[in-house]
Nucleic acid binder design. Sequence first.
DNA 1: AAACGACTCAACCGCTCGTAT
DNA 2: AATACGAGCGGTTGAGTCGTT
Length: 344
Amino acid sequence: MGRAPCCDKANVKKGPWSPEEDATLKSYIEQKGTGGNWIALPQKIGLKRCGKSCRLRWLNYLRPNIKHGGFTEEEENIICSLYLNIGSRWSIIAAQLPGRTDNDIKNYWNTRLKKKLMAKQRKDQAACRLLEQEIKRESETFMVNQTLNHNQIQVPYWAEQHTSMPMTTMHPSLVHHHHHPHLGNQDQFTRLLTKIEGHLYDDPQLSNYQYPTQQQQQQEHLYVQASSSEVAINTTTMTTNVNYTQWLNTEYDGSMNLPSSDEFEVYLSNNNDNQLGRFDGNESCSGGGGVDIGNNSSTTSNSAGSSSWEDMSSLVNTNTPASSFDTYQNRSMADPGFWNGVKT
DNA sequence: AAACGACTCAACCGCTCGTAT
DNA sequence: AATACGAGCGGTTGAGTCGTT
């Protein structure tokens, strides 16, 4: 059975609101409120509009203290930060920006912020390539010096049994390249990254990836732990299309193997933004020290500002550069297993 | 000045969810 | 428990505006 229409479609006016209609709606709501029933409202005040249309007009345009346009840099950062955490939940994002409507934020993201991010990704990727070359060059220099000094790295006996395990050495002074001023935000992007991974794993060409066994992971973990005081071991290899054994047998080629900005862009477009944020309740981030969101929509704030949501400020980092790709790259660099990672 | 494409944003549509019955 | 309905939400659309040729 189909859903009954909320109003008589044939007898309602559509399209832009006239100043008269605005005045009628505004003065009524200011005097008497909505009465808790938007559907009945237009009839009461003699407007030939759908109740939903009245509600939208009030919330997005007529209600007091609405701000239009002119988003500040801080607001942009808040939007980006929250988008990366919770996806396209515009009403929640709007609740953190007084005077802004979900519609405005959504439009702003779709028409400007997203493009801005893309531009920054390209720029960052170029910088990353340079950094990659520098690290490779300096690592090579370091290894030559190390050999000359007969400064052999002690490989534990249990690791020798796994001599094919990818290993590379890196001058400790270079390790800082793997850190980034914004790495503190790592957790807050985890779910976006998970989604990106998920998208990759959806690719049939990549679907034959075999996840490492617990034992394999432990071996790698121990090995890295035991060696990390002296050297940085980078097992980063973007090989989601090979199994873990093949991956173990792959020599680290010195590259960062970061996902390209093209991949990221394709991801964004394929997912049409919204899927980035389409987390269901089971994907609550509360377990990871984050904020549990959206499991109880009865407490959901709306763009009218009646927010009873938990404060999202813990998810907002106004210092975060407006680039999700930043984080996505940083995460890849900081966590070698990330891009090969275990699907959650 | 006209034509065209790109961009913006108000408004609509269809869906989910919560609540009342 | 099942159903109906309204509120709210996010995605999409298209008219209007702006910039370029």
